[in-house]
Write a protein that binds this DNA or RNA. Structure first.
Lengths: 279, 279
DNA sequence: CAGTGGTCTAGACCACATG
DNA sequence: ATGTGGTCTAGACCACTGG
């Protein structure tokens, strides 16, 4: 990935709107000299009414909101950036930590800190599946299939789909991205015997709806939907390009066909700050 | 509040279950000598495969899960605790920070760090309001009314309730607690002209449903429900006894009477780790 | 190999709450 | 006046990633 590296430069002022509770006005001022070297002229005053790390937080948020720091671009190394901002690395890290937690930044050990954009995906419950009703405000929505296989049902799968233990199921793991930013990972489980041609049909357009239709299932209804909150586990963090422990939504839903057979159990993990569930 | 102070003592081992992604096994071992002085004998080895702060996190989680640290009790001061655990205050704070973020602990500046329990409240959408369908697994559920007044509608209120700007509305702010732990704060707005006797009826049993019934509104329907995620603002943090910036659910919902009048706009703030929304 | 982020230390001053 | 948590500094070593 050819991430543009950000080394500093002129700065536009933009009101920071995100993150309620951390919304004091700037104390940081870009240098007014002709220097293009970055942040050397910034003034962060210690122990004013807003902590330095919060001033830096506000400052970086503004750079992101203004579009000056674009999604995917890399920040300068922590040591350099801290030096330019005139603070300790620890103080800088306090700000970066908050930004990571809120999903604005991601870090990869040994590589660097990167900007994440936060596309807001509206999700409407139309009686079918979440992901199909994902709207993205004109953003490009992409689906990546991680794996698709058949296996015997474990206890949870059997219980949720009302199958005997060990019955064959199809398991599908995918990631949805909006504008190149992964925002949703899902694991879906289907009863294998009801959908013999799953793989063939799915390969054509990566659509589960198509698979249902191909097997004569035109209509199905949402039996139950659960939404809960949690913190990104290792695999979720990797898939969604988040820092470990970032807060996320977790969803679980079950669909039933017209005959009352449970045909899908879906679990999803969503970036907390990127989704609105509307019913 | 007569919070019991925890100064240390014998320790039971319990498997930590919470916080996916931070679930390595213990490296900390309680001292086997007869010492009752607390944590002097604990061994946290630096730079093993799990960071020290995570070992401490796991250790404290276990103490909370085991019931050894009860909700409302106060931890020893950070300096003393750090000394007893044999780490720097900063390292200890890294663990405490994670625990605060997940809602297990709260801190009050100048006072101390306290244990929060995390009651799981199941919320079922029965077509009416969230809070009425709040189940609490045998826990005692209490409602505290913060304020109730009449005022002219601002732009948002007017839009949501489909009222002319400045029309009189009733505003109600409450907090719900389960087992003494606040888990939900709500702000509800009603069109004042439709509910002239609001205050009188509400005073009797603190029930909005009663108010509706008293005004001849037996049935109403949920027009829209929104669930989104965010981070606790200052007032939310105070109400829910959280640390500023803790991740929360935010809900927004609108109810309509049989005639199609919008009679309630409710916004809620929920502790992320304490709620399951089920539809 | 050099550069990155992740972790950890041993101090220090401050604002705040309580007695 | 004392003790608390919140902030900040100036170093250091580590594990990881990439060329």
């Amino acid at each position: 990935m050819p991430a543009a590296r950000w080394t500093g430069g002129p700065v536009r002022h933009v009101q920071a709107r995100r993150s309620e509770g951390v919304n004091k006005s700037f104390r940081a001022q870009p240098n007014r000299s002709g220097s293009m070297s970055g942040f050397d002229g910034l003034v962060f005053r210690p122990r004013s009414d807003t902590p330095i790390w919060q001033q830096i937080y506000d400052y970086l948020i503004a750079l992101i909101d203004s579009g000056y720091l674009q999604a995917g671009s890399q920040l300068p190394g922590e040591i350099h950036l801290a030096e330019k901002l005139g603070v300790t690395r620890i103080t800088l890290r306090r700000a970066l930590q908050q930004l990571q937690q809120e999903g604005h930044l991601t870090s990869r050990k040994g590589v660097g800190v990167f900007v994440r954009s936060l596309p807001l995906a509206l999700v409407v419950r139309d009686g079918s599946r979440f992901s199909e009703s994902l709207t993205a405000d004109g953003k490009s929505v992409a689906t990546q299939t991680l794996f698709l296989d058949r296996e015997p049902a474990d206890a949870d799968m059997a219980a949720q789909l009302r199958l005997p233990a060990g019955a064959p199921v199809i398991r599908l793991r995918r990631v949805r991205s909006a504008d190149g930013q992964p925002i949703y990972s899902s694991t879906k489980v289907f009863p294998a015997t009801l959908l013999p041609d799953f793989e063939v049909v799915y390969a054509r357009r990566q659509s589960v709806t198509d698979v249902f239709v191909a097997h004569g299932i035109q209509k199905y209804r949402r039996v139950e939907t659960r939404i809960s909150g949690g913190f990104a586990a290792a695999d979720e963090a990797q898939l969604l390009q988040l820092t470990l422990g970032t807060p996320v939504f977790r969803t679980s839903s079950i669909n039933e066909d017209a005959a009352g057979n449970r045909i899908e159990w879906a679990r999803g993990c969503w970036l907390l700050t990127s989704v609105d569930f509307i019913f």
